[in-house]
Design a protein around this nucleic acid. Structure first.
Lengths: 208, 208
DNA sequence: TCAACAGGAATGAATGTTCATTCTTTTCGA
DNA sequence: TCGAAAAGAATGAACATTCATTCCTGTTGA
């Protein structure tokens, strides 16, 4: 909880968030505006009234839907983290070779980064930030552990370099994020061909 | 310039920074404290008086050495960016093979990340931030262009994968940063052996 | 058919706090 | 004793959050 927060303690009665159709629209508009601004200027760099302005909503309205600025950023984090991991893990080719599994992982991350560029940038930017709550951190850890187990199994079958699994995760995820960043910052063109090339390059780093 | 800045316009007379020995000490203490806090909490997340407290200095003293909070972050950025690029480029093995050049680059970055972990984290965190000034951005661009030219030459000799150079930079730098992050966030142990393993892995991603 | 009303939803000015920066006072070295 | 340097209280702008008020929208009773 931010030192500046004067907010109600747990005992305070908080009016429940609106449940009407109109309400759902506003909630979505607030989340979208906050997503954009947090990506542009960071969490501490964006003011709540700015979010309200972009969402075309009164500043007070935000507090009908979210308990605090921190609650807002955490909902955004969990929402997009779940969306990404859901997309990556749904119908994951459990029985396939390590090469195919890696390819599936890569392609799904590419699709997410293309479909939800702001969501991807947001996750990258707010990873391990101090204002994330226990739930957000637990979600992150569950996903990492899932990946670790997978890598260990593939290594056990002799399908992946027998190297500390975290190191492989660091290389693959780091390279992926590095590409997205160079695209955003230096204009690297990431069309399908480029993504496929990159997939092949990074595979060479982790294959046996 | 931050919207909160009420600072003096260009015409204002600013007292010159102290030049005594005592002054140099204070300047360094302020820079070090700011470095630590910017890494811990980010630029907007750290208050100038916090920096003063950690530097064991009055809040006003900071403004004897730096025109503003932005000037402070920019000095820190340019200082560490220059330090890193200087260390990487000094006596660079211009005539060596691409493999040796890559190895030299990697080892020098490792050394910097080990010697100046805060400096490295700071550069990573503040890359392309909106509060960096034109000088800071120009410095960043010069370094990238130097790397691009090197890659093109190596590719021309057939020593490196004939792929968009920015893509190779993104993979190598991304993987490197990914490892440092996994080390800080998940406890990946980066001893010399791990760094050497990683160097070999990433080389496989860019070799012909 | 419609005026009066009820109550949830939305608002944005008001609130008290924290911030970056300035300024007066105090300290220090010569 | 003097002038530069340091300190930290003072300042006003900007912040997160609240709350008295207004705005809707659906309902009632005639």
């Amino acid at each position: 909880m931010s030192p500046r927060a004067r907010s109600s303690d747990a005992a305070t009665v908080r009016r429940p968030a609106p449940t009407t159709e109109r309400g759902a629209d506003k909630r979505g508009a607030i989340l979208q505006a906050a997503l954009e601004l947090f990506v542009e200027r960071g969490f501490h760099g964006t003011a709540v009234p700015e979010v309200a302005d972009r969402a075309v909503v009164g500043a007070g309205t935000i507090y009908r839907y979210f308990a605090s600025k921190e609650a807002l950023v955490n909902e955004l984090y969990q929402r997009h983290k779940s969306l990404l991991s859901g997309r990556v893990l749904r119908d994951f080719p459990l029985g396939a070779s390590a090469r195919e599994q890696y390819g599936a992982l890569w392609r799904r991350m590419v699709k997410y980064a293309q479909d939800e560029p702001l969501g991807f940038a947001f996750l990258e930017l707010h990873n391990h930030a101090s204002y994330l709550d226990a739930d957000s951190k637990a979600l992150e850890e569950r996903i990492t552990n899932f990946g670790l187990e997978f890598i260990r199994q593939a290594q056990h079958r002799g399908d992946l370099r027998p190297v500390e699994p975290l190191l492989l995760i660091g290389i693959v995820m780091g390279a992926f994020i590095g590409l997205v960043r160079k695209s955003a910052e230096c204009g690297l063109v990431l069309d399908d061909a480029a993504w496929n090339t990159a997939e092949q390059c990074v595979w060479e780093a982790i294959r046996v």
